[in-house]
Design a protein around this nucleic acid. Structure first.
Lengths: 336, 336
DNA sequence: CTGAAAGCGCTAACAG
DNA sequence: CTGTTAGCGCTTTCAG
């Protein structure tokens, strides 16, 4: 293994100079730096991560805690994780992958052992048991999703409330008077996941504001459940002409079900989804949708974390504004 | 921060004794060990990962390189990653997440800096550019998937050739005489991914062995492509009664298309999938399938890696035998 | 602008 | 069965 003293000798300087050349923490004459850089390249030097972490109290690794629960849309989580890795690499950090399963002990373990020097936690619940720990930990952290009480933390997410509102606004604009929200599976609401509730709140608030009749329907993530939900909607709300879907798994099955029940989309029924753009575009009937920008959330989360690591102040809350794209699944009421 | 000397003082022993109590590398009297354990608990001691890595030349971290290419089924990759993390934690290791994007440089970086002490690489191509590096690296590695020449490496995967064969055997058993394989998207074949080809080989070999007419059809991962493929199959192969599908994204759309074209499954057409059991079970018509056991592959990969880390010899190749489960999508020929 | 030297916290000989 | 001690490779004062 080639070490810093090897490079120093080869370049005819002291180890500390090599160290400073690498970190940029003090100025080095142009000539010296070039000699050092040449030596590094020539010898193939790579600083020992452990030694560096020991001496500097910085591991340059961030932990990413990913959820494994049912009801989470896997591609969204994955996309997010990938953008975190990419973003972290851009700041010379690596990413340690932790599963929800490890819980608070896992967080404490990687924090106390100085394995990582910051944390990104996904899928935060309204009353997440990890919150007290995260607040007390010396390490900076960024949460994806909003707990009931974000004070003392740093949280980021799509503004799901505004997303729910935007969907209704769009339907109202098109003249619809009776709308329904097909939401996440019941267990997602039960375990008090913030984003599901926020969509529901925004949906209801906007509907009330515009004087629309509205109802909310949690839905399991299966084709059969989608079918049942569609039947129930038509039976219980005969005046229904606008549907907001916040459930990736049932997007296509739901539209299929409506059509098999004799309704055309968007002729008889307009559908607005809250989902990744990719999904909305790929649907047989491309769906008008509010994007879930996983990659952007991931990138921003890393930026926030790096800011905190460098001591910069960051906002407690970062809410990304919803972006609605009109596609083929919406139209004015009564076109059919 | 509480360090090993604090624990040693508190327990009235030397630091090395604490270290040995932790590692188990030499025997400690029952009484001493208990005193040490009590002190550790009481003080909340957690060894500094960097210091430990520096002194022991072991980071207890393994790198996992995940693919990001199109045509990979995201849930399969994710499931695999999760089982690697879980397995690694079971051996007191953590997992560093790397993306394919980083390529060979990324591998070299984490290896040379001693950030990790072993590698798991997914989605290995037949002539993967990382192979020479992996062969030359001092670190042990395990590959998911088989390159053209696995000598000098450690590879594990489902036996996709046998999987392709098993599907055909099942169809032959049911009396089918003309079969087709709907495969991965064309780009997967083009970039020479081993598993796609192996399925095709097994499929063809078994068909020939049983005297069945057979054909192979790569298929894009979209509903529209599934529909086109279905139409084409019926047009070009009117005698077709058995279809093997190795493409998670088109499973449901393909069956839907067949039915919309007037064929019943399994009445007129039997369908066998190669996909995760979950998908096969969740389909509207539960699909007879050969399982893609991501979790098992991940767990086994970790076991192989840990064996290598401990110096034990491991086989170059580990092929998991296919497991076929009969569900509702297959039946004897001519039932319709 | 550069060097010398003192650790960072832990492990693993070596010694008993 | 336990203690002493010499590093592991790097960063960062302190000194010049």
């Amino acid at each position: 293994m080639v070490k810093i003293t090897d490079v120093a000798r080869h370049a005819g300087v002291s180890p500390s100079t090599v160290s400073y050349a690498l970190s940029g923490k003090r100025s080095i004459s142009r000539e010296t730096r070039q000699r050092i850089e040449a030596s590094i390249r020539e010898l193939g030097y790579r600083p020992h991560a452990g030694a560096r972490a020991l001496a500097s109290s910085r591991s340059n690794v961030v932990a990413l805690v990913v959820p494994l629960r049912t009801g989470m849309h896997v591609p969204v989580v994955t996309q997010f994780a990938v953008s975190v890795v990419t973003g972290a690499r851009g700041h010379d950090h690596d990413v340690l992958l932790l599963t929800q399963e490890e819980g608070e002990d896992g967080l404490r373990r990687v924090a106390d052992s100085a394995l990582v020097d910051a944390l990104i936690v996904m899928d935060v619940q309204l009353h997440d048991p990890r919150l007290p720990l995260l607040r007390s930990l010396a390490l900076p952290s960024v949460l994806i999703g909003f707990p009931a009480e974000p004070a003392g933390l740093t949280c980021i997410d799509l503004d799901f409330r505004a997303a729910g509102e935007a969907c209704v606004e769009q339907l109202a604009l098109l003249g619809h008077r009776c709308v329904a929200l097909v939401g996440s599976p019941p267990e997602v609401y039960v375990r008090q996941t913030g984003f599901a509730r926020r969509v529901a709140r925004g949906f209801t608030a906007a509907a009330d504001r515009h004087g629309l009749a509205s109802s909310i329907h949690p839905c399991e993530a299966s084709g059969a459940a989608a079918r049942r939900t569609a039947e129930r909607l038509l039976r219980e709300h005969p005046a229904l002409t606008g549907v907001v879907v916040h459930n990736e798994a049932v997007l296509e099955p739901l539209v299929d079900a409506f059509e098999q029940l004799g309704l055309s989309v968007p002729g008889d029924l307009s559908v607005v989804a809250i989902c990744p753009d990719k999904l909305a575009e790929a649907a047989r009937t491309p769906l008008t949708s509010v994007a879930i920008p996983s990659a952007e959330v991931g990138a921003r989360a890393v930026e926030l974390l790096m800011a905190k690591l460098s001591g910069a102040p960051v906002p407690v809350s970062t809410l990304l504004p919803p972006r609605l794209t009109v596609r083929a699944s919406t139209g004015p009421r009564g076109t059919g």
